[in-house]
């Protein structure tokens, strides 16, 4: 994997911001006892495409702000969060939020080490202490009350105080990146107190051109004409979901990429799309609608040799 900064240069991201990233890396490089955390730096298998979003995100992180990435499905929220950690070369803690999340899940809880009761730190505590990037995935799945413990961590105080234990200051390199989607079942609005502690970035849907580039980068041997058809297929499914004719289940960029991986292995496009895209929805009527869209773009028996050179 080449350095992500090279990719950002190609994306024509403002060089001033890239200099800022380099300075950040130099200032907070993992050395000595921190070497063990290198395994936590994400590999950035998928790269986020979109110059404007990159520039906004880099500026927020360089300014010491926490970032909240909002947007519907398949807009690349998690990809960008991972890419940011990779870009700044900081270890990442991925924390998936759910309705039963509480303070002990995030900060830590009492535990017994065989002799005495000790504090077992949670991911937020570790991230804050080690200067990592905490990725708060689907942050609005948790109850707002449970998230109140994060307030002092996320605002200007930058500290965590656990009653009965020590108080720590948040490492200057630590950042928290929340992701959220209003549409999912079980999600709720984030309260004002929490949302005011983030710089909020609305993630746009991926554009045709960016999706073309993404596919070209992931599947360099794919024929250009076929690639365009897959891009349009995704845009058409997106349009159908936006028009509320189908749910967002089938609007799955990962699914599309997985389908192409399967065709690379020799499976026909129809079968691969059936497995990775159409069957993502469990409603048979909805599957029919999605199948109609697929059939109007990609013939069912399109073979691997027709897709790739």
């Amino acid at each position: 994997m080449s350095d992500i900064i090279e990719f950002l240069k190609d994306e024509k991201v403002d060089p001033v911001l890239l200099d800022g990233v380099r300075q950040f890396r130099a200032e907070f490089s993992l050395a000595g006892s921190e070497e063990k955390l290198k395994g936590r730096i994400p590999e950035a298998d998928y790269l986020y495409y979109g110059r404007e979003v990159w520039e906004k995100a880099l500026a927020a992180v360089l300014a010491g702000k926490n970032l909240l990435l909002c947007g519907p499905k398949a807009t690349g929220k998690n990809v960008l969060a991972d890419d940011l950690a990779a870009c700044f070369r900081r270890p990442a803690w991925n924390i998936s939020f759910h309705i039963n999340m509480d303070a002990s899940w995030l900060i830590g809880a009492d535990s017994y080490d065989g002799n005495k009761v000790v504090f077992r730190p949670g991911p937020v505590w570790l991230c804050a202490k080690e200067g990592g990037f905490g990725i708060l995935d689907e942050v609005n799945m948790a109850r707002n009350e449970a998230l109140a413990v994060l307030h002092s961590t996320l605002d200007h105080r930058r500290m965590i105080d656990v009653p009965g234990y020590e108080k720590i200051d948040v490492h200057p390199a630590a950042r928290f990146i929340g992701t959220m989607n209003y549409g999912y079942a079980g999600t709720r609005d984030l309260n004002e107190a929490l949302s005011s502690r983030f710089a909020i970035l609305q993630m746009p849907s991926i554009s045709d051109a960016d999706l073309e580039r993404l596919l070209a980068a992931r599947f360099p041997k794919m024929r250009e004409k076929i690639r365009t058809q897959f891009v349009r297929l995704f845009i058409e499914i997106d349009k159908k979901a936006q028009s509320a004719e189908i749910s967002e289940r089938a609007l799955d960029l990962r699914g599309l990429l997985d389908a192409l991986k399967l065709t690379e292995q020799g499976l026909d496009a129809g079968d691969a799309l059936e497995m990775c895209l159409i069957n993502k929805t469990f409603d048979s009527y909805e599957r029919t609608l999605i199948r109609d869209v697929v059939n109007a773009r990609i013939p069912h028996d399109l073979s691997s040799s027709e897709i790739f050179d």
């Binding site: 058409e236 349009k239 159908k240 028009s243 004719e245 009527y285 029919t288 609608l289 109609d292 869209v293 109007a296």
Partner: peptide
């Protein structure tokens, strides 16, 4: 609905 969806999509 299905016919409509095909038409709209095209």
């Amino acid at each position: 609905r299905r016919a409509l969806n095909i038409i709209w999509n095209a």
